[in-house]
Amino acid sequence: MEVRTIKVFTTVDNINLHTQVVDMSMTYGQQFGPTYLDGADVTKIKPHNSHEGKTFYVLPNDDTLRVEAFEYYHTTDPSFLGRYMSALNHTKKWKYPQVNGLTSIKWADNNCYLATALLTLQQIELKFNPPALQDAYYRARAGEAANFCALILAYCNKTVGELGDVRETMSYLFQHANLDSCKRVLNVVCKTCGQQQTTLKGVEAVMYMGTLSYEQFKKGVQIPCTCGKQATKYLVQQESPFVMMSAPPAQYELKHGTFTCASEYTGNYQCGHYKHITSKETLYCIDGALLTKSSEYKGPITDVFYKENSYTTTIK
C-alpha cells in the first residue's frame, strides 16, 4: 500500500517557510505537534488534498525554529505562539472599519479597549522592536488589523473576551517599542525636605499616572512627601515624541487643539466601556464603527496623549 502524501510549508514567522512532505494517514499533531492554519487549530486533523502548498504555523520545537521565533517575536515564552494563534482565530472574524481616516474595530468580545489602543497607536510616533509587531502594525494602518490585535493580546497575556485596560495595554506595548531616546527629568520640591531631581528613561519617561493635564504637570502637581507634608512635583525636561497622561476616570474637559487623542471610560472596574476622542479640525468621538463630532467635550476621561518633541522648564 502506497503512502499518500502532500507537500506543505511549516513556519513560526510566515517569513521562513520549511518544506514538509506530510503523510495523509496521520494527523498534523502526530507529525508536527500543535499546528495552526489561519489561526485555526488543526492539530487533530489529517492532511487533505486542499492543504497542498498551504502554510501551517507550528510551535518552535527545534533550534532553527526557536531562533526564527525569537528573532521575529522577541520572546522565548513557549506558550506565546499558541496564544497568538488562538487569538487570531477570533480577531480574523472582527470587522476593521476605516473611521475618520483611522483603522478602528467594530465592537465584539469586549474589544473596546483594543480599538482605543489601536486608534491611539496610529496617532503617536512609535516604532516597535519585534519585527512581528512592526509588520502587523503597518498592515493594521492599511486596514488589516487582525494579526496586530492578536499579537497585542498575546504580548499582554490576554484572551479574547476578557476586559482590558488601555493604560495597561499601552504599557505592555511600550515595553516592546523603541523608547531608548526618551528621557524625563522631574523635580520634587518640599518646604521641609528641599528639592530632589529624578531622571527617568524609556517607558517611565512617557507615562504618568495622577493627572490628565500635561500643562498642569509642567506647572506642578501636589504629591505627598515622605515627611508627610505636601510637596510639588513638576516637569523639568521632556525628550520624547509623545507623552501619555493618565488618571482614574473623572469628568474632564478636553479643549480642541490642546491634545492629540484621549480615552474615555464609562462604567466601573468590573464592567465598563471605552471610547476614543481625537482632536482634528474639530473633536471626534470614535466608538467602534461609530463616529460623532463636537466642538467641545466633557466626560469621564482616563488617558490623554500629547505630541511632544523637546521641553525644558522655565521655572527657576
Rank of each mutant, 00 (worst) to 15 (best):
V8P: 05
V8H: 06
T19L: 11
Q20P: 07
V22H: 03
D23Y: 11
D23H: 09
M24Y: 10
Q30C: 15
Q31W: 10
Q31E: 09
T35D: 03
Y36V: 06
G39T: 13
G39Y: 10
V42I: 14
V42W: 12
T43P: 04
K44E: 15
I45Y: 11
I45M: 13
H51T: 03
E52I: 12
K54W: 14
F56W: 02
Y57S: 08
P60S: 07
D62P: 06
D63I: 09
T64W: 08
T64C: 15
L65Y: 08
H74T: 01
T75V: 08
S79H: 10
F80T: 04
G82F: 13
M85S: 04
H90G: 12
H90C: 11
K95L: 14
P97N: 06
Q98G: 06
N100A: 15
N111Y: 02
Y113L: 00
A117L: 02
A117T: 09
L118N: 05
L118T: 05
Q123W: 04
F128T: 03
Q134T: 12
Y137H: 07
Y137E: 05
E144Y: 12
F148G: 02
A150V: 01
C156S: 10
L163C: 13
G164Q: 04
V166H: 06
R167Y: 02
R167C: 00
E168L: 10
Y172M: 14
Q175T: 08
Q175C: 08
D180I: 06
D180V: 07
D180N: 15
R184V: 02
V189H: 09
V189P: 03
K191L: 10
Q197V: 12
T198P: 03
L200Y: 14
K201N: 09
V206R: 02
M209R: 15
E215W: 06
K218S: 05
V221F: 10
Q222R: 14
I223R: 05
P224G: 08
P224R: 14
C225T: 02
T226Q: 13
C227A: 00
C227V: 01
G228H: 00
T232D: 05
K233I: 15
M244R: 05
M245V: 00
Y252C: 09
G257H: 06
S263Y: 02
Y274G: 00
K275G: 01
H276Q: 03
H276W: 14
I277Q: 07
T278Q: 09
L283M: 12
C285S: 10
C285A: 15
A289I: 10
L291C: 12
T292H: 15
T292R: 09
S294K: 09
Y311E: 11
T312F: 13
